[in-house]
Amino acid sequence: GGTTSGLGELPSGWEQRFTPEGRAYFVDHNTRTTTWVDPRRQQ
């Protein structure tokens, strides 16, 4: 941990993952979708 950059926890059902290249993306298990956009930035 320690790399949350002050955004806090992800919404319920979300998970942060990384591509083999090390790029972060976000998985929404509620809708079984993925996005490059941090859901915390859409609030």
Rank of each mutant, 00 (worst) to 15 (best):
V27M: 15
T19I: 04
G13Q: 06
A24H: 10
S5L: 12
E21I: 07
G2E: 11
T33L: 08
Q16F: 06
G22M: 08
N30D: 08
G22K: 15
T19G: 06
F18I: 11
G8Q: 09
V37S: 10
T19L: 10
P11W: 00
Q16Y: 08
S12K: 10
G6R: 11
T19V: 05
H29T: 07
T33K: 07
G13M: 03
R40T: 06
G1T: 11
S12G: 09
Q42E: 13
R23Y: 14
G8R: 08
T33D: 04
R41M: 13
D28M: 01
N30Q: 07
Q16H: 09
T31V: 04
W36F: 15
D28H: 03
R41L: 14
W36P: 04
G8A: 11
R17L: 14
Q16A: 08
P11E: 02
T3Y: 10
E9K: 10
S5D: 15
P20F: 04
P20Y: 04
W14N: 02
L7E: 12
W36A: 05
L10Q: 04
Y25N: 03
R41S: 14
R17H: 07
G2M: 15
D38T: 03
L7T: 11
S5V: 10
R41V: 13
A24Y: 09
L7W: 08
G2L: 13
Y25C: 03
E21S: 08
G8P: 06
Q16C: 09
F18D: 13
L10I: 07
D38I: 02
T34R: 03
P11A: 02
E21C: 06
Y25A: 00
T4Q: 09
T4K: 14
V37M: 13
T19D: 15
Q42R: 12
A24R: 11
E15M: 04
Q16L: 09
D38A: 06
V27Y: 08
D28V: 00
S5A: 08
F26V: 01
P20M: 11
H29M: 09
T3N: 14
W14G: 03
P39E: 01
V27L: 13
D38E: 06
R41Q: 14
